[in-house]
């Protein structure tokens, strides 16, 4: 079960990473980042179960807090960009790109 959980975590992380690179809708990109964080959480929980050490679960709680903070700020930025550019396409927010 542990090895399946770790494999599942790898698969979810890969899906999230590819999605974050490929999709252009900034809200979907943020959701993909959430998915990657979740994959890491799954790995932490699986290892916590493997070694019988609850510290891994404490880390998961920290990751959840960070994810919540990231969503709040990230969506705040999305709203601010949408006000200025009327778009949620990440390619439209490329003013500072070289």
């Amino acid at each position: 079960m542990i090895e399946q959980a770790v494999a599942l975590s790898g698969i979810l992380f890969a899906i999230g990473a590819v999605g974050a690179l490929v999709r252009r809708n900034v809200i979907v990109v943020l959701m993909c980042i959430e998915l990657m964080l979740n994959a890491v959480n799954l790995a932490l929980v699986a290892f916590s179960r493997q070694w019988g050490d609850p510290a891994g679960q404490v880390f998961v709680l920290m990751v959840i807090v960070v994810a919540a903070a990231e969503v709040a700020v990230g969506l705040g930025i999305v709203i601010a960009i949408f006000r200025n550019r009327e778009s949620v396409n990440v390619e439209d927010a490329s003013l500072l790109r070289w």
Partner: peptide, 12 residues
């Protein structure tokens, strides 16, 4: 969390 909350409010 406090920093994120203030940041989100100011941004939005």
């Amino acid at each position: 969390l406090l920093a994120a909350m203030v940041g989100a409010v100011i941004l939005a």
